[in-house]
Nucleic acid binder design. Structure first.
Length: 211
DNA sequence: ATCCCGAGGG
DNA sequence: CCCTCTGGAT
């Protein structure tokens, strides 16, 4: 299922993916991809973001929502990349999460999709689905990461993240999940009534299209 | 009305 | 743990 699940943000470098991911908060990827061509042309490097005019930057990203805080993050991001990393995006989690506007979710997206480092991206979809599947009861994203990391080998982490996120967006919605259209319903402990079943959860790991 | 692949701050 | 930031799509 979803053998070709992938990051739907358009980018050609770690810096572009980092900025696109920041913009994607509470916004569709499609809309992000509508603003990034002009944005990336106007600010090709971290130094260009660092010296950007705030209002011009805000104007270019306005339609993605949260544009003031996102512009703030991107300005600070450009400065910090220039001051501390020679204008390059660092390729490790600890450094990434210290950048303004970059949390663990964004950092893992960049690691997994721009640096080829296996990463589990625990966003709202991923967390909701693994709990429905009975793969963990944790809600803290870091604990979820570790729990799922124990169930799957690192080489599967990035693709697994994309697959669950796609499934969450298309079928397993937050409010009214489309269980009738879900290929996983027969293994899903949350389908129908009754408490979470550990055997079902294990079967979903073993037999499910995600393994 | 309600939701969207979050992060930072109190 | 709560709140805030924001426009767009449906």
């Amino acid at each position: 299922m979803y053998p070709d699940a992938h990051c739907e943000l358009d980018f050609t470098s770690p810096l572009e993916l980092l900025v696109a991911t920041i913009l994607s908060a509470q916004c569709t990827d499609k809309r992000v991809n509508q603003v990034t061509p002009k944005l990336f042309a106007r600010y090709p490097s971290a130094a260009d973001y660092a010296s950007a005019d705030r209002e011009e930057l805000e104007g270019l990203i306005r339609s993605t929502g949260f544009y003031r805080s996102k512009a703030n993050s991107i300005l600070g991001l450009g400065r910090k990349l220039c001051d501390e990393y020679g204008g390059e995006v660092p390729g490790d989690l600890d450094a990434l999460v210290k950048l303004p506007g970059v949390g663990r979710k964004t950092a893992n997206v960049v690691l997994g999709n721009a640096f080829g480092v296996p990463g589990i991206t625990v966003d709202t979809h991923f967390g909701r689905l693994v709990r429905r599947f009975g793969w963990t009861l944790e809600s803290d994203p870091v604990k979820v990461e570790h729990a799922i990391g124990d169930l799957f080998p690192p080489k599967d982490w990035t693709l697994l993240s994309h697959r669950l996120i796609w499934h969450g967006r298309r079928i397993c919605h937050s409010r009214r999940p489309a269980c009738g259209a879900c290929e996983l319903a027969r293994w899903c402990p949350s389908f129908g009534e009754g408490p979470t079943d550990e055997a079902d959860a294990a079967a979903l790991v073993r037999n499910g299209p995600f393994s």
